[in-house]
Simulated scan of single mutants.
Amino acid sequence: MSRLRGRWRSPGIWRRGLVPAVVAVLLALAFFWHARIPNAIGNLGSLWETFLPWGGLLVPVLFVWALLRRSATALAALVLPVVAWVGLFGGLVGGGSGAGGDVTVATHNVDAENLDPAGTVRSLAASGADVLALEEVSDARADAYEKGLRSAYPHHKLIGTVGLWSKYPMTDVREVDIEMGWPRALRATVHTPQGKLAVYAAHLPSVRVEFRSGFTAGQRDGSAQALGRAISHEKAGRVVLLGDLNGTMNDRALAPITSQMRSAQGAAGDGFGFSWPAAFPMARIDQIMVKGVEPESAWTLDAAGSDHLPIAASITL
């Protein structure tokens, strides 16, 4: 034991471990300035931002490396990525859910190949949501959702593969063009007991991680810009966006939307609220965003027959 203490007290502890120390500094910079990591090569920046919370797992790896090298320099450098990670995600770990709320909203990518739409309907109907958005509603299963949800949600509209179901009357329902060539977004005015609420439901294009081309997200990025423009022209003072955006709040590609709206999960959720993939959620690519209303709580629902988890939020108008 005395020999071990002697090694840690030797002057060399500040000279050893320069490599893990440099890696720790680079990790901190990747957290602090994630938006500056270039997308020129394989959309590397957006890929890093999609799984940004998981970058924290590198900290214990570097900690063990620093211990093995008996390096005080490396241990001191580890403070930087820890501070950066806590600054980004510490609020989510602490949780911010409150009680109450006037309206509960939910969204779910039900999966076009869903083998149990009836089970999905039962689960969603029992969620307590007042307004429900569904994405990836295939022609073959549209009737199952429309009939199954009719009693709980007397007002609904399905445009393309995206639908909106509501316990309250809806007017001014129309397609929102997100430049995909077929309908994947809609907008409606929901008449709640507390007043009008503009609700958008959207399903942005999928992204892929491929060996040769990297993180392919060009079509998703273009649709995000189109959706952002539509929301910027919205005249209603209270707006909610529900949908599968195939991107996280940290992803710069969603900036046309996130610059105008805030995440219900980020404002009032407990934990990260990862929604995909359902078997082992690693990213929150399904979003509830708000403007002009106050999120009170946000949560993830149990799996309901899809590769995505449903998410919900309670808001005060």
Rank of each mutant, 00 (worst) to 15 (best):
Ala76Asp: 07
Thr120Lys: 08
Phe211Met: 14
Pro281Ala: 01
Arg174Ile: 05
Asp111Ser: 15
Leu242Trp: 04
Ser166Met: 05
Arg69Thr: 11
Glu179Phe: 08
Thr189Lys: 08
Pro81Thr: 03
Leu27Pro: 10
Ser2Gly: 14
Leu132Lys: 07
Arg150Phe: 10
Leu164Pro: 00
Leu26Cys: 12
Gly163Thr: 07
Pro281Met: 03
Pro169Phe: 08
Leu227Val: 10
Ala106Pro: 07
Arg5Phe: 15
Ala144Val: 14
Gly222Pro: 13
Gly87His: 02
Leu254His: 00
Thr248Met: 03
Gly128Pro: 07
Leu67Trp: 09
Lys167Met: 09
Asn250Gly: 10
Val209Tyr: 12
Asn39Phe: 00
Ala77Val: 03
Ser259Gly: 15
Met261Tyr: 03
Ala142Cys: 11
Leu115Met: 15
Thr248Gln: 00
Gly87Arg: 04
Pro277Leu: 01
Met170Asp: 04
Trp182Ile: 13
Glu179Gln: 13
Thr258Lys: 04
Arg70Gln: 14
Leu254Arg: 02
Leu92His: 14
Pro256Trp: 01
Ala142His: 13
Leu47Ile: 05
Ala126His: 08
Glu175Ser: 09
Leu164Val: 10
His155Glu: 14
Ile285Trp: 00
Asp302His: 15
Asp172His: 08
Arg141Trp: 03
Gly181Glu: 06
Ala283Lys: 03
Gln287Lys: 14
Glu234Ile: 05
Trp8Gln: 06
His233Leu: 11
Phe89Asn: 00
Ser127Val: 04
Gly237Thr: 15
Arg150Ala: 11
Ser97Phe: 05
Thr171Ala: 09
Gly269Thr: 03
Ser223Pro: 02
Thr104Trp: 02
Thr300Leu: 02
Ser275Gln: 02
Ala304His: 03
Leu58Val: 12
